[in-house]
Design a protein around this nucleic acid. Structure first.
Lengths: 207, 207
DNA sequence: CTCCCTTGTCTAGCAATGCTAGGATCGAAT
DNA sequence: ATTCGATCCTAGCATTGCTAGACAAGGGAG
């Protein structure tokens, strides 16, 4: 019995090695450089071994994505915990999100840019993904305002951050103004505390 | 001399045919299906012909992207022209942007998702791209507010739209709430007319 | 009208990709 | 010690982007 356990443990180790190596390779040279051959060579096994752990390259990307989602959730919660006002929390959240995307571009790609074969916004969405969204939701609910569902607000804020992250990384936006764009986003999107409970009374519509 | 002109004309026709076919194929079956072989077969030439017009697949994607940028600029200008208040113009702009992304996913991918070998946010950025950004800028300058550079505001708003567009199309966001998310974005990001000239007096900061 | 030579096109092929079939090998249980 | 099953690797397939080199067509000079 113990021998089977050992084998299973070795198998798990190897699976972790595969994911870690894929991630490392992707961070170093981009996902295009992550070929099954190179990956196999780095883990010092032959290619078919990869397919005994994962259905294919997609699932490997998916595994990296899940790992990244967990880390991202941790990072965001840590960042928001250090701030003391709702407003400061949102700023910290936004910074931490964009910082993660910038420092782990390959992981961010695996999560949101590439096809990792993961289900999103559904029941069978993997736990780490739900949790990362939950981390966003926890912080952003505070400043959503009374006139919008917190989920809807979170989705919108998240999409904005995602847009900033991807366009910047793709060279569509110059990185110098990232901080200013972040501030703008937080300033305008997040409801100031004072308006949180009387937003319905005097909505600042012009017409 | 006339014979050379004819040849050049035929060459130009064929180039247009290549781009149009690539776009069509991409819209029908996705960019993955756009292989040099399939493309060559559809235009009824051999693969090397493609390389006498474009350096490679990337440049073909780039050509589709430029075409798309022009069309997008036209669509956005048409949408905003029909509205009469700054606020209505921004809403129309946002809807038209997201509508374009939804109806021409392949073109949108060529523009912002794939590598078409184009320069962005630089001097040598192709004219159609600059113009598409200008179309955004024209409309959004009106509601940027006094405390932000119009360019910065446009970039941020654009990034938000881009985030919504990509996350929705990738299945990360459910399409049902698109309209509500758009409204939220416009409501919060676009400065209401009334606050345009006294935003500096009493900024709604909570601290 | 005939020959040549440029221009343009195609056939065939290369290296790299994701993925798989089939055989070889190793080790555990009898 | 032997059998048998799990595990792994060699070898290969089809497809990809891209290119070299052969080949043909057609205009210009004699």
């Amino acid at each position: 019995m113990s021998v089977q356990e050992r084998k299973q443990r070795e198998r798990d180790d190897r699976e972790r090695l595969i994911v870690a190596t894929a991630r490392e390779l992707a961070e170093q040279q981009g996902w295009d450089a992550v070929t099954t051959r190179r990956l196999a060579e780095r883990i010092e096994y032959s290619q078919p071994v990869l397919y005994s752990h994962f259905r294919g390259k997609r699932e490997i990307i998916g595994a990296v994505a899940l790992q990244g989602a967990s880390e991202m959730a941790v990072a965001m919660r840590a960042a928001t915990a250090a701030a003391d006002s709702p407003r400061a929390r949102v700023t910290a959240l936004a910074r931490s999100y964009l910082d993660f995307a910038e420092r782990h571009p390959a992981v961010y790609d695996a999560l949101f840019q590439l096809d990792g074969g993961l289900a999103y916004a559904q029941e069978d969405t993997p736990e780490p993904l739900k949790d990362a969204f939950a981390a966003l939701l926890e912080c952003l609910s505070e400043v959503a305002g009374d006139d919008v569902r917190p989920e809807l607000f979170t989705e919108t804020f998240w999409a904005s951050l995602h847009g900033l992250a991807t366009l910047t990384r793709a060279g569509r936006l110059l990185p110098e103004d990232t901080e200013r764009r972040t501030e703008l986003l937080v300033d305008r999107l997040a409801m100031p505390q004072s308006q949180l409970h009387d937003a319905h009374k005097d909505p600042p519509h012009s017409k």
